[in-house]
Design a protein around this nucleic acid. Sequence first.
DNA 1: CCTTGCCTTGACGTTGGCGTCAACGTCTAG
DNA 2: CTAGACGTTGACGCCAACGTCAAGGCAAGG
Lengths: 131, 131
Amino acid sequence: MRIGELAQRTGVTTRALRFYEDQGLLAARRSANGYREYDEDDLQLVHEIQTLQTVGLTLEETRPFVECLRSGHETGDSCANSIEVYRRKLEEADALLARLGGIRGELAAKLAAALARQAPDPCVVPESPRP
Amino acid sequence: MRIGELAQRTGVTTRALRFYEDQGLLAARRSANGYREYDEDDLQLVHEIQTLQTVGLTLEETRPFVECLRSGHETGDSCANSIEVYRRKLEEADALLARLGGIRGELAAKLAAALARQAPDPCVVPESPRP
DNA sequence: CCTTGCCTTGACGTTGGCGTCAACGTCTAG
DNA sequence: CTAGACGTTGACGCCAACGTCAAGGCAAGG
């Protein structure tokens, strides 16, 4: 199939597909007129890339998975390098979750404090000068 | 004080301070020789920007706080616009936490599945053909 | 006078993942 | 023959928040 069909079947733009090729993730054969020619394996590769992107991997991080698939394995995560990426991303996610949780707490505290100053609690007023 | 001192006292680079000025967040007076001249209010402004950045606000989002301070309020979050930004960021943080939590779960599942395929559970082997 | 250190503006580089032209070749239907 | 749908490469644009030169002005000490 040509690039347009692959794009349609994956939901990835032709621009993205060419970009993947630039990055060495996708290797297209060329037909006589210079058009890129893809097969079902390429379709699977693109699907793999898409799936991994949705779980937060960068394109660069999908490389081990792609290479794993190209080296004949049935799934992209059948290789040690891919597993290692999983581990790293899991750690990253945990770190990010921790940081983000902390930030969320600080934000909530700041909001609460600002609201308290704006409209002080009508029951427990701190110190309002009474003339 | 001049830009170098402000940089030292805040831990922000001079480049960043000039950038803030470009963005209209910081307005420096100029001394006769063209050097930027800052006062203690500017110091507070920069501190406010720093604090807000650490809780995930973009520079653009700190603008209401800066304007609030410049309009005479004691704190940057004494104005409705600032409060509104707090609210938005809190929602963003919650949304991000939810998404990231989901992603983390998917990653963990993928890792577990890959490990299971790599070294299948020695107690509950699925189906290994016995010759 | 010369060096050293601080300051100025201006302009390009960085990171990721493409989007969006531009200018042109190729194939097919009418 | 031509219009239109597809394909090609190349190159710049985008977002955020600066980093990193470059090329030079200003002030003070020795």
